[in-house]
Simulated assay, not measured.
Amino acid sequence: MNNRPAIDITQDIFDHICETIADKGYIVLHNLFPIAVLNNLVDDLSQINTSAFKPAAIGRQKNQQVVETIRSDKICWLDNTMTFAAPYFDWSERLRLAINRYFFLGLFDYETMFAHYEPGTFYKRHVDAFKGQSNRKLTTILYLNKEWQQGDGGELLMYRHDEAMPFETVEPRLGTMVVFLSELFPHEVSLSNKDRYSLTGWYRINEGIPLD
């Protein structure tokens, strides 16, 4: 699993991501990565031992707690020792550098997790970062569901501020990626009717706040 092909993406794509985020605050990308790269990710992630997964918590640091009425997925944190994910981490680093050049955000760190939503699970409306309280600045979500169909659930619903209705619904199809400013968009994961998988990550700035 060590010699995975690099994700060959031109600088134009990173420029497009930055320009769209500057204009809208978010971007939804389709078919960003080659299907071979996606299949490799799915195959290798599926081999992670189930004991590595834990119920996802809400809150930060000492205030973290598992509240299944709000969030009921299971997660496994990834790190650079997982060599099968090296192409994805390399791409994420290129995005970090591009975002920093464009926005001067000073993003210094990227953390990512493999999330599994079993049938009947969900994540109610929330914000990834609260202004003045978090150093998460940019969220990425890559969906890894090969045979997702309408009716399978697990869509990402994105909201503006306190509006009651979502302005964007993202189907969690294989290869779809969402990138958005973490503080700007409340969002939720609708009820999943079948197994749903994604890689979710956050870019951070250094505000002297310990990592979760």
Rank of each mutant, 00 (worst) to 15 (best):
P5C: 08
D12Y: 06
F14T: 11
F14V: 10
I17H: 11
I17Y: 09
E19L: 14
I21L: 12
D23M: 11
K24F: 07
I27D: 10
L29D: 09
H30M: 01
H30I: 00
H30D: 15
L32F: 08
V37I: 13
L38A: 04
N40C: 07
L41Q: 05
D44K: 05
S46L: 09
S46A: 14
A52F: 13
F53W: 03
K54A: 08
P55S: 08
A57Q: 11
G59V: 03
R60E: 03
K62T: 14
N63I: 01
N63Q: 13
Q65H: 14
Q65M: 12
V67M: 12
T69Y: 03
T69L: 03
R71P: 08
S72H: 07
C76R: 05
D79Y: 00
N80D: 04
N80H: 09
T81E: 07
T83H: 06
T83A: 10
F84L: 04
A86C: 00
A86H: 05
P87K: 09
Y88P: 02
F89T: 00
D90E: 15
S92C: 13
R96Y: 00
R96T: 03
L97E: 03
L97G: 00
A98Y: 01
I99Y: 11
R101C: 01
Y102H: 14
Y102A: 13
L107T: 12
L107P: 06
E111T: 13
E111D: 15
T112N: 09
F114I: 00
A115C: 05
A115T: 13
Y117R: 03
E118K: 15
E118R: 15
P119L: 06
D128A: 05
A129M: 07
A129W: 06
G132D: 03
G132K: 08
G132V: 10
G132E: 07
N135V: 03
R136V: 06
K137T: 06
K137H: 11
L138E: 05
T140M: 10
I141G: 02
L142C: 10
L142Q: 09
N145R: 06
E147T: 12
E147C: 05
W148M: 01
Q150D: 14
G151L: 05
D152E: 03
E155C: 15
H161Q: 09
A164W: 01
F167R: 04
E171C: 14
E171S: 15
G175Q: 00
V178N: 01
V178A: 05
V178R: 02
V179T: 13
V179H: 08
L181H: 02
S182C: 02
E183K: 13
F185V: 01
F185T: 01
H187A: 01
S190I: 05
L191A: 04
L191D: 04
K194M: 04
D195W: 04
R196F: 03
Y197M: 09
L199E: 00
Y203T: 06
R204G: 11
I209T: 07
